[in-house]
Design a binder for these strands. Structure first.
Lengths: 231, 231
DNA sequence: CACGAAGGTGTACGTCGTACACCTTGGCCG
DNA sequence: CGGCCAAGGTGTACGACGTACACCTTCGTG
């Protein structure tokens, strides 16, 4: 429906076209509907043609990750390390939010892609440039975890729209069985709408966590923290 | 090779036996080798027989999650909230470490299982009992993310054993291209062995992060933090 | 103009989850 | 005691999927 068609005369494929078509297709139909077959069809080509450009599906996914990672801004310079890192990570977050499937794919890689390594190396470099020791930076990166990529592991995968009265019933049942969950869910729902699984401001939560961590890192840095001190 | 065999006379199946056999099989052969077919064979039964006990594979995985979640200790009482939460989460961690596939399966669920909700509700209850506001607790749970389950998103999936000289070559290449990564990897490698992707003490990293977060939570709690304060 | 490599095709295999119709038990009630 | 019926187990089959392998087609270069 996008390209293909006009059989017979079609631009030659290459790795880049394949990768970008895959990203676009995943954006449109979701990652679970992206198969070698559907991608081939999208490109007006037979499935096996793709294997001339990517070794297999895993490598296709690797390549797609690197396309997205390439969208992350380079580090700003001239700012203090804390806000520079913060900005960079929020940029990563913006890139990943444009492609909702990307975080799951990144997590599923069995080895980091070259683009991912570039990005990680440069983030580490930002901490080092800020004066943090290699030792502290190591632990800092671990503590950041998937947050360097701009996403948080979601505990509640945001159930899609259900009709309001079913939700009301569910709410009553939930409140009986999971009083605390319902309470803290309600804590963030100002207007009356949809108490369960909604009304969560993801961006706020992300910045809350990242600032808590960055402040913690800064505190440790200032007091000259070393892993050797910890028994 | 474990049960089955002695055809003809075989204990009746039920949901629980299916679930526990699935957990044991995943422990033994890995989650990616767990199929409805392999599980059926393990139980000495035809694949379709399983569908009398679980609706489909997703529900099988849900059930497996709840088996593991059931292994998490109940909250200790009598301790302050911080160390009580800490202990509980480390118990979750121990349970998940016994079943290395479990974290990936938990992440892949599209809706939380009942057992997961029970656990989350009770962890939230621990913060509330410690006096944290529902508001703060909400954000705290988000900041914890998958860490409530006792795992951190691994950035480097721990490449398995490769021979030492290949590693030495790789090291030289890595050092040129990713100087900072190699530097912080080395920061934690005291003895000379395997600089790349090894020598990381997961348990240390986990506790570093969890304590950083818990300390941050405590600080906010003491100073009466409220999300309303944040612009 | 020929030729060889790079790009594209067609067919086929093994694996997966599972729908659907069927048979076999075993516990309960008359 | 006999018969019944639901719960448990079977067999066959289908439509995805990733991809191996042998083949044909196109095009840039000598």
């Amino acid at each position: 429906m996008a390209q293909q068609a006009d059989a017979g005369q079609r631009a030659r494929l290459n790795r880049d076209r394949v990768l970008h078509a895959a990203v676009a297709l995943a954006d449109r139909v979701g990652i679970e509907a992206l198969s070698m077959r559907s991608l081939a069809q999208e490109l007006g080509v037979v499935p096996m043609a793709l294997y001339k450009h990517v070794a297999n599906k895993e490598q296709l996914l690797d390549g797609m990750v690197d396309v997205i990672v390439g969208e992350i801004d380079s580090p700003a310079h001239g700012a203090d390390w804390k806000s520079a890192v913060r900005e960079r990570i929020l940029s990563a977050r913006r890139a990943l939010l444009r492609h909702p499937w990307a975080s799951r794919v990144i997590e599923s890689r069995s080895a980091p892609t070259p683009g991912a390594l570039d990005y990680l190396d440069s983030v580490i470099g930002m901490f080092r440039a800020g004066g943090l020791s290699a030792d502290l930076t190591h632990h800092v990166m671990h503590a950041l975890g998937s947050r360097v990529w701009g996403f948080t592991q979601e505990l509640f995968p945001a159930s899609p729209n259900v009709d309001p009265d079913a939700q009301a019933v569910m709410f009553r049942e939930m409140a009986a069985r999971y009083p605390y969950i319902v309470e803290i869910a309600a804590a963030r729902t100002h207007d009356g709408e949809s108490v369960v699984n909604q009304g969560c401001d993801d961006q706020f939560e992300f910045e809350f966590a990242i600032d808590l961590l960055l402040d913690g890192f800064e505190r440790l840095h200032r007091q000259g923290w070393t892993s050797a001190d910890q028994s």
